[in-house]
């Protein structure tokens, strides 16, 4: 339903905007209906930039994003409102989305005046109740309360509920779990998974690999604005092939395995077949760095549903 086709974003920086920073380069991936795709990368890798382009909050510098076949950049005027009826975002810090001097449910009334001005009071109340039930909140727990009277988890769920008031088909969830405590984290994750089960497409942005691994069907690993590895989540995590992915996975603190053990396992087999990297098997190195179309190596299929673009081509990091 959502498709990124060689999307790039260049920010103008410097005093006169004379320099350009390539925050996202040539990124392509799809998110289907009823699918969670996790977009994983360290801070500054361009995750939020991609989310903002999908949400039309910033312009796309190059390439295109389509939603159900429509070019997102071309959506203008009244059509923008219909786009936001179907595509919404929820961001990291739930507190910053609320004005502390207004009650938290004001975020709902704003949707009503914007999208449903004609709706009767009782129909609206019923709609709110359904949306709250969808995120497992009791109306009397959260309605008519100020933001400081609610927990981070409740505020975050209210924001998802607000999105549900629309005919939402697609959600961009940008680090929405990071600010939450362990015991409420899993509830919000499960909530996203249930929305997915009901057909929603979700772009799940995170720097936390274990969260992405838990919830998503597909994983995209971003490094400095470039996709280095992507595919079915179990393949990317079970058989990490790009050296960067390996570093990330072996650095995640696990609960039953020490770092050293994980590292040893990945060294032993993760992507290396008899010492030959899967990527290099498909794409034998020529000894020149940056080999491949343009200045980046192409994404190569290393197995079904698993693609890798290797940066260290020819630099001897893998035993090619």
């Amino acid at each position: 339903m959502l498709s990124l086709n060689r999307v790039s974003k260049f920010y103008k920086i410097g005093t006169f905007g004379g320099k350009e920073l390539a925050a996202v380069r040539d990124v392509s991936f799809d998110v289907n209906r009823g699918e969670v795709v996790s977009l994983i990368g360290e801070s500054g890798s361009g995750k939020t930039t991609i989310g903002k382009m999908v949400l039309k909050l910033i312009e796309i510098s190059r390439g295109s994003i389509t939603f159900d076949g429509t070019d997102v950049a071309g959506i203008k005027g009244g059509a923008v409102k219909s786009y936001y009826r179907e595509v919404q975002g929820v961001f990291q810090d739930p507190f910053s989305s609320y004005n502390p001097i207004f009650k938290a449910d004001r975020v709902f009334t704003m949707i009503r005046s914007e999208y449903y001005p004609e709706m009767s009071r009782s129909d609206w109340d019923a709609k709110v109740e359904t949306a709250l039930a969808g995120v497992s909140l009791e109306p009397d727990q959260v309605l008519n309360k100020y933001p400081h009277q609610l927990s981070g988890g409740q505020l975050q769920r209210l924001l998802v509920a607000r999105a549900l008031l629309l005919d939402l088909k697609f959600l961009v969830a940008d680090e929405i779990i990071s600010m939450l405590d362990a015991s409420t984290r899993i509830d919000v994750l499960n909530l996203l998974a249930e929305l997915k089960d009901r057909g929603m497409g979700i772009l799940f942005i995170t720097h936390d690999l274990s969260l992405g691994n838990y919830i998503s069907q597909k994983t995209v690993i971003l490094r400095r604005g470039v996709v280095v590895e992507m595919g079915a989540t179990d393949k990317v995590f079970g058989n990490p092939t790009h050296p960067y992915t390996k570093v990330l996975i072996s650095s995640v603190p696990q609960l039953h395995k020490k770092w050293a053990e994980v590292e040893a396992e990945i060294q032993a087999h993760g992507g290396d077949h008899d010492g030959v990297c899967l990527y290099h098997e498909a794409y034998p190195p020529t000894g020149q760095a940056g080999d491949g179309p343009g200045d980046r190596p192409a994404m190569v299929k290393v197995e079904d549903d698993h693609f890798v673009g290797c940066f260290d081509l020819g630099q001897g990091i893998c035993k090619a």
Binding site: I186, N190, S210, N213, Y214, T233, Q254
Partner: peptide, 25 residues
């Protein structure tokens, strides 16, 4: 017990093992 069992870790997936949180606050 509830805290430890609510933690997603690499290898645990929603599809195969749904974790539960601690109700209330």
């Amino acid at each position: 017990r509830m805290l430890i069992s609510s933690l997603p870790e690499v290898g645990v997936r929603y599809e195969t093992k749904k974790l539960v949180g601690i109700p209330g606050s």
